Simulated scan of single mutants.
Amino acid sequence: MDEMKRFRAAVVAWAAGGPEAGAAAATAGELAAAVGLRAVVLVEGASDVAAIEALALRRSRDLDAEGVAVVPLGGATSIGRFLGLVGPQGLDVPVAGLCDAGEEGYFRRSLERAGLGADLSRDGMESLGFYVCVADLEQELIRALGVAGVEQVVEAQGDLRSFRTFQKQPAQRGRTVEQQLKRFMGTLSGRKIHYAQALVDGLDLARVPRPLDRLLAHVHPARL
């Protein structure tokens, strides 16, 4: 495991608390220095990590080498604890993040409690480097690619026949194709993460969803 992966794992273990938290905190501090940590990006889950890292690669960026750690929270409600660990009261490194519209309130209130702002609007959150997906990153990517583009990605992954069968299920018949595609990508373990990367790989780089585009721009080395 390379040092940036170890750093991310240490932060997650630190946030989990328990008897190992103290050792994890010490490890995170040591590794922050070792990797030249310049920013931490806090996202809800592993599929968000996959999408961000895939877009960075397409733009010829190596986030690890830049000292940018993308850390999954394991759920939006953990944002406050992670901010306490890596933000001004903890490691004191610049923080940024990405969340779904439904979790915007958790992020906003946690940023305020961490002392990073007051009475934050969405614009205020963005000024801090925190961006909101409408309604979530999967929907942002589906809109950016369009139904035909997403189906081309599904076909390239060898899943188009399975998707057509999925569409015929009674529970799917009243849904839009966009809704069916989103649901299909979440039906098997690991598929959501896989498709987060595959959809980004299929994007026209002139049509990158705004939250994803702005987030990466915010943690560009020229701004840190």
Rank of each mutant, 00 (worst) to 15 (best):
V11D: 11
W14L: 06
V35P: 01
L37K: 09
A28T: 12
V35A: 12
A26H: 06
A46D: 13
R6E: 15
V40S: 05
K5G: 13
V43L: 07
A25D: 07
A13D: 14
A34R: 14
A39P: 01
D2A: 10
A25C: 11
A24C: 09
A39N: 10
E20I: 09
R8P: 00
V49M: 00
K5R: 15
A21F: 04
A24T: 08
S47I: 00
D48K: 02
V35G: 12
V12F: 00
E3Y: 10
E3N: 14
W14V: 02
V43R: 12
A39Q: 12
D2E: 12
L37C: 04
G18E: 01
G22N: 11
V43M: 09
F7R: 03
L31Q: 08
G17R: 01
E20A: 14
V49T: 01
F7W: 06
V35F: 09
A21I: 07
A51T: 07
A16M: 09
V41Q: 02
A13I: 03
V40Y: 06
G45H: 06
W14S: 04
G17L: 03
E20R: 14
A28F: 08
M4F: 10
E20V: 14
A13F: 03
V11C: 12
A51E: 02
V11L: 14
A9H: 05
A33K: 13
G18L: 06
A50H: 01
A24Y: 07
L37F: 12
P19G: 13
A23D: 14
E20Y: 06
A15G: 15
V35E: 09
L42I: 05
G29L: 13
V40G: 00
A33S: 12
T27W: 04
A33G: 15
A16F: 06
G36A: 04
A34E: 08
A25R: 15
E44P: 00
W14M: 05
R38K: 14
V43D: 08
M1N: 06
G17A: 08
G22I: 07
A34F: 04
M1C: 08
A34L: 11
E3D: 15
V49W: 01
R6Y: 00
E30R: 15
A51K: 10
A9Q: 13
R38E: 08
M1D: 11
V12Q: 11
V43E: 12
V41K: 01
E30K: 14
V49D: 01
A15D: 05
L42C: 07
A46C: 03
A23F: 10
T27V: 13
A21D: 09
W14K: 05
A39W: 03
R6V: 00
E3F: 08
V43K: 08
G22F: 05
A51Y: 10
A34C: 04
A13Q: 13
V41E: 04
W14Y: 09
P19E: 15
A23I: 13
A16Q: 13
M1Y: 09
A13C: 02
L31F: 13
A39F: 01
D2Q: 12
A28I: 06
R8T: 13
K5H: 12
A9I: 11
